[in-house]
């Protein structure tokens, strides 16, 4: 429990830090929205003062920070003065799409990479291990952007998948099956790119920690008791190997989110990626900051999830023992 509390506290502190940084950027941004109005002779200084007061810009910085935090908590993510509306709702639709992509990619990556890693570790130095190892190295060494562009070129050329956007134009008229199919075909390309980037890394880690476990005396003891190969690997070795692998999970999520933003831009997936790009180009500061803040929240939540998994998988941590190995 103390472990959980410590990690919860750490997550909250990280959130606070990120929010302070984001807020600092809004303050550091040169000028304010009303500077341009000042140049307009038709708007009296009194009007501007009233407007500033209305949006709370004349209040001291800590109070403005508190207000901003409040709007964060409400899910508004600050106020976009230009559109006279909160940034939140705009962001949420995009964030949902990013989440759909990253969650699917996460599940698939781990479903594929964990058995591969275990298999590779158990067939040490044999053909399967070498083949899996070489493929992983290749996947790790080729940058995502190259994979993305290559796959995009292939996909467009042979019309294998649907590229651009998330659904086709006539999506609403399709049957349920048609909708699923359409969405699947749109997801195929971005997901494939993310999988190619992630599987190698995860497989490597799983292999390393499982093969370390396979040489331990308790695996020998389990072998001496006649426990079968598959059970030995998945029920005896994997739960112990899970500890370092779960720690990787937090980093993995961070990396995946970054990769996803890029892949969304390349494949035209309507997630946070393209939104951040547009907003940056048009200097729509509040949107950029809100999107950054949202990414940070997703990442911190992912790390916290990893901590929860750690507690669930390792009784030594639950009992507040020092990390064994």
């Amino acid at each position: 429990m103390r472990f959980l509390l410590r990690r919860l506290l750490r997550a909250l502190l990280m959130l606070l830090g990120v929010s302070l940084l984001c807020f600092a950027f809004t303050q550091m941004a040169p000028g304010s929205f009303f500077d341009e109005m000042r140049l307009n002779p038709q708007i009296s200084p009194e009007t501007i003062a009233t407007l500033r007061a209305h949006y709370g810009l004349n209040r001291p910085v800590p109070i403005r920070y508190a207000h901003w935090m409040l709007s964060l908590a409400k899910g508004d993510f600050g106020y976009c003065i230009a559109y006279n509306s909160p940034v939140g709702p705009l962001l949420w639709t995009r964030a949902k799409n990013t989440l759909l992509l990253t969650a699917t990619a996460t599940i698939l990556t781990w479903l594929i990479a964990v058995p591969l890693g275990v298999w590779s570790a158990s067939s040490r130095r044999r053909l399967a291990d070498r083949f899996i190892g070489a493929s992983s190295s290749l996947m790790i060494s080729v940058p995502e952007i190259v994979v993305a562009v290559a796959l995009l070129a292939v996909a467009v050329r042979w019309r294998l998948v649907l590229v651009g956007g998330m659904v086709s134009l006539g999506f609403d008229d399709l049957s349920l099956w048609g909708k699923v199919r359409d969405l699947f075909l749109h997801m195929l390309l971005p997901i494939s790119i993310l999988l190619l980037g992630g599987i190698g890394v995860v497989e490597r880690h799983v292999r390393a920690s499982v093969s370390e476990i396979l040489d331990t005396p308790y695996m020998n003891a389990a072998r001496s008791l006649g426990i079968g190969r598959m059970r030995l690997l998945f029920r005896h070795a994997l739960p112990v190997a899970a500890n370092p692998v779960i720690s990787l999970f937090g980093f993995f999520l961070a990396g995946l989110l970054g990769a996803s933003l890029l892949v969304e831009v390349v494949t035209g997936w309507p997630g946070l990626g393209p939104l951040i790009l547009e907003a940056t180009l048009s200097r729509d500061l509040y949107v950029v900051i809100a999107a950054t803040m949202l990414s940070a929240i997703l990442m911190i939540a992912g790390n916290f999830l990893a901590d929860l998994l750690l507690i669930a998988s390792d009784p030594r941590i639950r009992d507040g023992e020092a990390h064994a190995q």
Binding site: T216, Y218, H236, V240, R316
Partner: peptide
Amino acid sequence: AVSLNPVT
């Protein structure tokens, strides 16, 4: 001490 699985 090292022949039993630590997490089971």
